[in-house]
Design a binder for these strands. Structure first.
Lengths: 125, 125
DNA sequence: AAAGTATTTAGGTAATTAGCTAATTTACAT
DNA sequence: ATGTAAATTAGCTAATTACCTAAATACTTT
């Protein structure tokens, strides 16, 4: 279960356009063009990419992208793993799965409560 | 389908603790204690509440809460409806339902792609 | 019509965020 | 060992955000 503070960090992280785009591409493999640049013998998720490759997709400086990645990592929606002199960026699907379940539960409970309310109303008439 | 800009507005709205708490309580009926304060003859969702009632739950000024509500409204996750001299705040479940579906799709696609990848890998060996 | 209640607008300040360049660190390759 | 590449840290600025109080608006009640 995600705590409120964890959810707040995720929403803050995803509420910025640059971070949202990074998130989107990291999760959907938008950066896999970087596969060929990977170092021989390094085992990584085939969807993984590295910081400089991501930065190449934006008109922002590398330190700016690095800071955005740090924030996405602190929100636990990506992982950063140093291998050699590169930092590999990978999606952390488990956090997104948990968030997805939070929303599904919220919607389901809402619908259930609404149904309860309306069936009560019908019974009265 | 929610556009990226719509999603960004939702995440920005929910990335602030005060707005998150308002959102939570508006959706789960946390403010229904205000029901008895409603004006006679006014038809509202039984979960609805009004701006002042919400503000009473926080140590922030009424204008601050009003501004937060405006932002939640612009993110389309609540609705504000003026009836008499009160503004009734109601959850907008449809937007949350759409967001929930976005996350569910993201997770499902991710899992499907991962499965495809691993089955391919197995085939090669 | 005057007073009261609910809410928003206006205008201000302090804190936070998003960006930059320059400098530093770490690892790799020559 | 030296140079190159990848990334982070430090230190700065501009823009945005979150709050406030006071004033204005809109509606209701007396």
């Amino acid at each position: 279960m995600l705590t409120m503070q964890e959810k707040l960090k995720i929403f803050k992280a995803l509420g910025n356009e640059t971070r949202f785009l990074i998130f989107k591409n990291v999760f959907t493999g938008g950066y896999t063009c970087s596969l060929d640049k990977k170092q021989a013998g390094v085992e990584v998720n085939p969807i993984a990419t590295c910081v400089t490759t991501i930065a190449e997709h934006f008109n922002f400086s590398l330190p700016t992208i690095s800071a955005h990645l740090k924030e996405l990592k602190e929100a636990q929606i990506i992982t950063l793993e140093k291998k050699g002199n590169k930092v590999y960026v990978e999606p952390n699907i488990e956090t997104i799965r948990q968030l997805s379940e939070c929303f599904a539960t919220l919607v389901a409970n809402f619908d259930e409560n609404r149904e309860l309310f309306f069936s009560k109303t019908v019974a009265v008439h």
